[in-house]
Every structure is written in structure tokens, then in C-alpha cells.
Design a protein around this nucleic acid. Structure first.
Lengths: 333, 333
DNA sequence: CTGTTAGCGCTTTCAG
DNA sequence: CTGAAAGCGCTAACAG
């Protein structure tokens, strides 16, 4: 015995049940301001009686709005973007949008394929972690009038909208912080992704020369931090300060230093990146670069919502900046 | 290549450009097996010339398949579920499905609202972290024939499909592991979410009495681990072994122990949960309970894909189990 | 306030 | 192998 699938409960059934026309039922649900109270009640009751759940795909076909937003991240398991994805989801959800997740895997080809998929799904906007490939879909997306919010990076010429900060400046700032304390034997432990490498470039340029560098494969891990410190000490046994491209890496450096009886910060200063929740609880607590990841997601969502309401976005490029959070791992010595 | 039309290029335009009928163009793209090679080529060229991107919403309306899957998690920023979400996304993506993300925030009311939203979007399946509320949408989803995969938990009567493990048994197993080593002064640091509390119940029942317990608010953090150890020592100054409901919590316990000059594992054994990437890199390396989170996501995706192809799923309840990964923090002493 | 008339862009019949 | 017709479930645009 197969149960009859009431899957086919449609607005039509609701209308008949309520004794009104299709469009009146539609309006009672989606634009009640123009329908009489009595009618709304009758439709409401019919909805309950039939167990009707509106089909948003059908509506979207006509209204040309899917109320979905694509979120493209390298890999979801990189904790860096999590606060951004969280506030993005929350803020959009409150406005009736749902997020469709895509993982590019740090791969431009997959990014292109995903963009095609998302455009095919007629998402109302695309939010991407990082910058889109300039030569790829950028022009096409512009012509299709799909709002694009690039995040976690900065450029003069975004595809459309941007909420981020300068990785170059962030790297320079940490270098400046080290130099100001008189540390000359400085090094960098960094992941090999584009943004981390840009911070590295900023760091090196502020120092004015190439510096000892350990490069690990993104996404970076605590384990990689341990091997990275070993590598850096090989390159410069007199190492005084290390900048790590993530707090996970920095945590690994702290552990490796302890096993080697290198006192932090007395013999070695360490600065991370990202201000992960565990940073301030390390021993010693970890100096790091704080990024307002949650703000990035919130502001990106607000831009998308504004565009959806036909409002123009005043500030098309938002620099949320960054700040160095000074803690025990770089305490003056 | 001519510039694409500003707004929407439809299959109609492609058909005209290729000099074939609408339906032939449709088949050339979605079911090329039944179309001649020459025609396919002409359609292909027309697609390129027009810059056509198929509208998957329109297709879904007729075919009743949206090729989307809802993923419901408490909050995306809890690292626990990340490997699951990652493999889920990847595996589904390879089969042409996209994931729509929903955050319940540990709140049943939001969960219900999200289910309604997702059903409205006509997702082809729902994957949820944890178990659905038995009295809520369960029956309704069954009637709608929407496949539901509950994960990261175990029950005899899932809504539909299940890939998980027993939290009760996991808690018992750690207790058994402690007792077998002769440790009697055992305690638990746990988050207050349902699954963690179940592990705690399993632990206590294996010990045979209530144990010193520090409860922290989910999601748990390294910081909470530090305060939790302080609390446990207050409850039992002779504490010999602690089970933590997450590796983050355990990392905090390790740090707090070090600042108090309590030697791990000599004076205090520590066991975490989840086998996070940083667990084996702690000092000492962290004994923990390993869950095959990536497998859970992959198997859940495979179930969804099977159902999508009309295949029945043989094993409706999959217990992926768990294993205690023995490391330095519980080395025999 | 309510109803009728047309579709949105595509895929499923069923015929050629 | 290709095509014509008939909608999927809903909402804009007008009329009443």
C-alpha cells in the first residue's frame, strides 16, 4: 500500500478549499495588505487544512528572484571564514534569503564551474571569499546584473562590491611591529594561498629584504606550524621573531618552541593571524592580527539585501581594516 | 563571439540560433544520447554564441527535482561538523547537487522554520546534524517523500535514514578506558548540548555513580576548558583523569594544567573528543575519541544520491562507530 | 478588494 | 532522431 502523496497540494487546492480564486489565495499569503481580513482568515485555514507549503521555485520563475545567494569559499573547513559565513547566513536568512554553499578548493577551474552552476540556479547575488579571477566571469556577471561581493581582500577594481582589507598592509604592519621592538632576525611561516602570500610580500617589503620563510600547503595546521619553526631555525638559528599566516600555525610554533626549550617571548616572539578563539588562551597568550570576520559577513549581507530592494550601495568598497592584538607571545623583553 | 544579450538568453534563443526546435535544443544539452552529433554541435555553438546559461529553476519546476539538498547544522562555526559538511558538499556537488545551508542555532523553533523554508524550496533531501524533533516535521517529511538523513547520533527510529554513532557508548568507552587504568578520581568537562550531555550520561553510568562535572555553554572553547579544569579541581582536588566533550576544551585543560604545574599525564590524564587536527600536535599529544566525520558526510551524500536515482538504500541505519585514539595525555604512568 | 488572462523557461508526454 | 502541444506552480498586469 503506497500512501497517496499529497506532494501535489498546490495553491490551487488551497484556493478551492477557501472558495476564492487562485490569485486571491496567492495575495492572501504574499501580500496580505491588499486582501480583506475575512478572506485572509479563510485562506489561512485552508492552508492548515491542506498542509500546503508554497513552492518558492515556481514563484521565482515568474518574479525572477530566487531569494538565494551563492557563497563561494576555498574550503568550508578553514576556520578563517567561519564567522563570515555564519553572520552572512544569519543576516540573509532574516531577510528571507538562503545561502547556497560552494567550495572552490583553491582552484580557479572549479571556481568557474561553480559560478556557472550558481548562475544557472539564478542566485540573486554571489558572495566570494577572496577576489574573483579578473578575466573569468567578472564581465559576464556584470552584464547579467548579478551583484557580486568580494570579501577578505582589497583591490581598486572589484567586480562589483567589496568588503575586505589589505593583506599587504597587514603583513607590513606586523613587520613594522617587530622592527620597532628591535628584532632583526625575523621570519615568516606562511600557507601558500594567495592572501597569505600577499601578507608575506608586505612583511618582506617592510623589512626591506627577503626574510627566512617556511611555506606550507593551505589550509594550514598546527602540525605544519611545528615543522615550519624547525625549518625557520634551520634557515636562521638566531631567529628572534616569527609571523605566522594563521593562529593554527602559530599554535604549532608555540608547541615546537616549548619542546625545544625556546622561551616565548624571551627568546622568540610569535605573532599569528586571525585572532582565533584559542589565541588568547595559549600559554603564553598569542599576539595576533584581528580581522572583523563577522562584520565582513554582515556587511556583505547588507549590500546584497540593499541591491535586492533596488537600493544603490553607497560605499561600494569597504575596508574593514585589521588590528594587531598584543599579547604575551610578543611581550617586551 | 558576439556580445551576449543584456538580460536573459533563453533556450528559445539558442534554438533559433541553431535552427532547431526548442525541444531539440533542450535534448542536445540534457540528453545528448538521443540527438544526432551534427545537431549537438550546432546547438553547442549556438550556446557559445549567445552566452546561454540554462535556468535550473525552470527545469526543476517541470521535472520536480531541484537538485538541491538542505544541510541543517546548529552553527556552522562549530568545527565538529566541518569535515562532514565538506565531504557532503563535495560528494553532492560531483553528482550535480548543491547544498543549501541552514543554521538552527540549537533552537527547535528555528529548526522548524528552516524545515518549512527548505521544503518550500523543494530541496530533494534534507541532511541534518543530530536528530530531528520526533513530534515536529518528521511525519510530514515522510508523507512528502523527502529523504531525510539524520547524522552524528543514533536512534532505533530515525525519521528516515541515519549515519551516526552512539554518544552514550562513546562516553561509556572513555569511562571504561579510565577505570581499566585504575583511575578512580575521574571527572568530566562538557558542553551543555544534547549530544555532549549524552556522552556524559554514558560516562557516569559506566562509572556507576555521579562524577565531578563542569558544564560549559555550547559551543565549547579553549578558554572554557581552562575554567572547567579549575572547577573540577575544586570539586575533587585528587582528580586523576578528565574526559572533555571536545578537543578545544581538552586543549584548554592542558594549558590550565601546565600553568598550575600539574604534570600531564603523570598527575592528570586527559581525553578529548573529536580528534581535531590540533589534537596530535599538543604537548603532550592528546588522547581523544575519533569520529569519522568525513565518512559521515560522504555516506549521507551517497544515500541522497541513491534515493535521487530511485534506488532503495539497503542500510538505512549506519553506525560509523568511534575509536579511542591513545596518545601522550593518557600514557601509562 | 477580487478575478481573469498570460505567461516565467523549461521538460514531459505523445506524435511524426 | 525530431517536433508540437501541454503544462509544472506561481505571480505580474490589467481589468472589474
Amino acid at each position: 500500500m503506497r500512501p497517496a502523496a499529497p506532494q501535489s497540494v498546490t495553491l490551487h487546492d488551497v484556493a478551492r478549499e477557501a472558495g476564492v480564486s487562485l490569485i486571491t489565495a496567492s495575495r492572501a499569503l504574499s501580500n496580505p495588505a491588499v486582501v480583506s481580513k475575512a478572506t485572509i482568515e479563510r485562506v489561512q485555514r485552508a492552508v492548515e487544512a491542506t498542509g500546503y507549503v508554497p513552492n518558492r521555485l515556481a514563484g521565482g520563475l515568474k518574479s525572477k528572484r530566487s531569494m538565494t545567494v551563492a557563497a563561494l569559499v576555498p574550503v568550508i573547513s578553514v576556520p578563517q571564514f567561519l564567522p563570515t559565513v555564519q553572520t552572512l547566513t544569519e543576516t540573509l536568512d532574516a531577510a528571507g534569503y538562503q545561502l547556497i554553499l560552494g567550495q572552490t578548493g583553491y582552484d580557479r577551474a572549479r571556481e568557474r564551474a561553480l559560478l556557472e552552476t550558481m548562475v544557472g540556479r539564478r542566485v540573486d547575488a554571489i558572495v566570494v571569499a577572496g577576489l574573483l579571477e579578473p578575466q573569468g566571469w567578472a564581465e559576464r556577471l556584470r552584464r547579467l546584473h548579478i551583484p557580486v561581493v568580494e570579501t577578505w581582500d582589497l583591490t581598486d577594481r572589484p567586480v562589483d562590491l567589496l568588503v575586505g582589507f589589505s593583506h599587504l598592509k597587514a603583513g607590513s604592519a606586523v613587520a613594522g611591529y617587530f622592527l620597532a621592538r628591535g628584532w632583526r632576525h625575523v621570519g615568516v611561516a606562511t600557507a601558500d594561498d594567495q592572501r597569505a602570500m600577499q601578507r608575506h610580500a608586505g612583511f618582506a617589503s617592510a623589512v626591506g629584504r627577503s626574510v627566512p620563510t617556511a611555506i606550507v600547503k593551505a589550509p594550514s595546521t598546527v602540525r605544519a606550524g611545528r615543522t615550519a619553526l624547525a625549518e625557520l631555525l634551520r634557515q636562521d638559528p638566531a631567529l628572534e621573531a616569527v609571523h605566522c599566516s594563521s593562529d593554527a600555525l602559530a599554535a604549532g610554533v608555540l608547541i615546537e618552541a616549548r619542546t625545544r626549550c625556546i622561551a616565548v617571548p624571551q627568546q622568540l616572539a610569535v605573532c599569528g593571524f586571525g585572532d582565533a578563539d584559542f589565541a588568547e588562551c595559549q600559554e603564553p597568550s598569542l599576539t595576533t592580527v584581528r580581522i572583523a570576520g563577522a562584520d565582513i559577513g554582515r556587511r556583505a549581507a547588507e549590500m546584497v539585501i540593499a541591491r535586492g530592494q533596488g537600493r544603490e550601495v553607497a560605499e561600494r568598497i569597504v575596508d574593514v581594516g585589521f588590528s594587531i592584538v598584543e599579547r604575551g607571545s610578543t611581550a617586551s623583553r
